[in-house]
Structures are given as C-alpha cells and as structure tokens.
Simulated assay, not measured.
Amino acid sequence: MSWALEFTEDPRELMRRAGGLLEADPVLGTVVATVTSSAVDALERGEPAPDHPQWWLTVVDEGSGEPVGVVMRTAPFKPYPLYVLPIPDAAASQVAAALVDRGEDVSAVNGALPAARTLAAELARRTGRRVHVHEHTRLHVLNKLVEPRVAPDGLARVAVPADTPLALSWFRAFHADAARQAGRLEPEGSSEQFDEDDVAGRIAQGRIWLWEDGLSTPVSLVGFNAPSFGVTRVGPVYTPGAHRGHGYASMLTAHVSRVLRDSGLRVCLFTDQANPTSNKIYAAIGYEPVVDMANLVITTRARA
C-alpha cells in the first residue's frame, strides 16, 4: 500500500481535502478541526500569515484516493511541534522522510499514539537524534454526565470583561502548575502563550466560566474551545492552589459540560496522565477515554 502526501499552507484546502475525515470522527479530530477552522477565519478576515511555520499535510491512500490522516505544523510557540492524527506506521515513516527532504527542523511531535511515536522515532533515526516522552496525555469524551456527589458553596457564572485580568493570570498559570504537579520541567515558551486580547475575545464569546464561592470570590475557571463539527473541547480547567480540595473544579466542569451538552454539542477534553487527581475528577463526572496521546521531544543526546 502506498500513500500520497499532500502539503498545503492554505487551511481552506485542508478542509476541502480532509474535512470529510475530520467530520467522520470529530472527537478524535477536534484539535485539527478547531485550529484549521480558526486559521480559515483569520485568512478570511485578511490577517497576514503568521511568522511561525503553518502548514497541513493530508495522507491519502493512493489506491482509493481517500484521506486517511492529517499532520499539521501550526503551533505558534517554540519548538513549533507537529500534531499528528492516527496514520499507518508505513505512512508515518514516509512523512518523516518527506519532512527531512523538505529541510524541516522538527524537534517535537504531539498527537495520537502510536503514529506520533513512529513519526518521531523515524525523524530521530534519519537525523541522528533520540526521542523521549515529555508528556503523556489522553483524550476523553463525555458520554453520560454524572453530577458531583458533593456540591460546594457558591455558583457558576459566565466571565465578564471585568474578569479579563484574573482569567489571563489563571490561563498563564495553568501550564506551569500542571507541569509542576506532574514533576515536569517546562522550557520557557514551550506551551501555548496567552495575551489579553485572546482572553478578552474568549470572554466576549462566552467561552470562559468562573465558580464563585459563598463570598462571591472567583475560585475556579473552566474554558472551552469554539465548536467544530459539533464538538467542543473543555479547557483549561484551573483552580489556584489556595482553593483546591473543595470540589470547585469538579462542580464547574460538570456545570459547563452540561450547558454545552444541552446545547447539542459533544464535549471532550484532554488530561495529563501524570496527574491522577484531574483524571479522577473527570472520570467521576462521566468522561471516558478515547485515545492515548503523547508530546514527544527529539533531542541530540540520550536522557539519563
């Protein structure tokens, strides 16, 4: 079996080529679908192309002419990792060869296993480097919502413009705290960066919720992505350390998940497998595993 590799820098072309594949499994394809849809919107608003790598690759079965997977490089933060949906191992090896031929300097690969691992390993082999897992993640989908057994004091509310500074500070704290809880060292600038305009835009679209305690103090935050193909992705979920252990995140995540589900959307989220607390919380309210994923780093030396 052979594969055609179709590269494009036009997100509209990716949707034409692989939109049917993404729509057929919109939970598995949620990241590709939302990132690509956002890029289409930016293009149609006349925004200039970003100064970081931005391209998409459709893997096509040459026998049937049907797309079987997508690889993209669109992350706006260093080292600009690839993101990989499931593809056959032979296709992943072919993609690695094509990327080396293109002169792509790839030092990180994220996405579904085993495709991401196969692609990273082949890139490392072809460039004389090694691969290690930086983070194990897991994609979950909500099938049947289970209300939390303990209801903390307070209430959920949609964030308003006056909440922008607080929400921005919590968005920025999310990745650092998650890494610290998992015992990982996060290189500076190696995760999604947020600015005031981004958070303000999410608030304007009603995509950030807060839980207020009995004193009307915000104590937890839950965001979610704009939907694509009927699926929305919850995240980030953040509670500052001083307010943890009271059930705020569980209650707010369940509330937001219920609101989204009742609006007709399917709801999914990612967890860090090294954080048993968050995994337990999401499982308790009805999120079920879909696929294991990993963030892989390609380095020039072996890890001890």
Results as ranks from 00 to 15, higher is better:
P50I: 06
Q54Y: 01
L85P: 02
G69L: 05
A49T: 14
I87P: 06
L57C: 07
H52D: 02
V84P: 08
Y80F: 15
E44V: 14
P81N: 08
P53D: 07
V71R: 04
Y83M: 08
P53I: 04
P50T: 10
T58M: 13
P67G: 13
P50Y: 07
H52N: 06
A49H: 13
D61V: 06
Y80D: 07
E44T: 12
V70F: 11
Y83G: 00
D41L: 14
G46D: 00
P76W: 04
L82S: 15
V70T: 06
R45H: 03
L85K: 02
V68H: 00
G65F: 11
D89C: 01
L57K: 02
G63A: 14
D51N: 10
I87Q: 04
G63R: 14
A49R: 15
E62T: 12
P86R: 06
G65K: 08
T74Q: 14
V70K: 11
D89A: 15
P76H: 01
G65N: 13
V68Q: 03
F77A: 05
K78S: 02
P48H: 13
T74Y: 13
E66R: 12
G46T: 05
T74E: 15
L57Q: 02
V60M: 04
H52E: 07
H52L: 01
A49V: 09
S64P: 04
P53F: 04
P79E: 02
P50M: 12
P76I: 00
E47N: 11
L43M: 12
M72K: 05
P81I: 03
G63Q: 14
P67Y: 08
P76L: 08
P79K: 07
H52W: 12
G46N: 00
T74M: 14
K78H: 10
L57N: 04
R45K: 12
P67S: 00
V71S: 01
P76M: 03
A42S: 10
V71L: 11
G46E: 01
Y83K: 01
V84R: 13
R45M: 07
A75F: 08
E62W: 05
P48I: 04
P86T: 05
P79N: 09
Q54E: 14
G65S: 07
E47W: 09
L43H: 02
P67K: 10
V70N: 09
P86L: 05
Y80I: 03
A42I: 10
P48N: 11
R73W: 00
P67D: 08
P86W: 06
A42W: 06
T74A: 15
M72A: 04
E47V: 10
P79W: 03
G65A: 15
L43R: 06
V84K: 07
E44A: 11
A42V: 04
P53A: 07
A42F: 07
Y80G: 04
A42K: 10
A75M: 14
S64I: 09
P86I: 06
I87C: 09
Y83R: 12
D51G: 02
G63P: 10
G65Q: 09
P79L: 06
V84M: 13
L43W: 00
R73G: 03
E44H: 13
G46Y: 00
R45G: 00
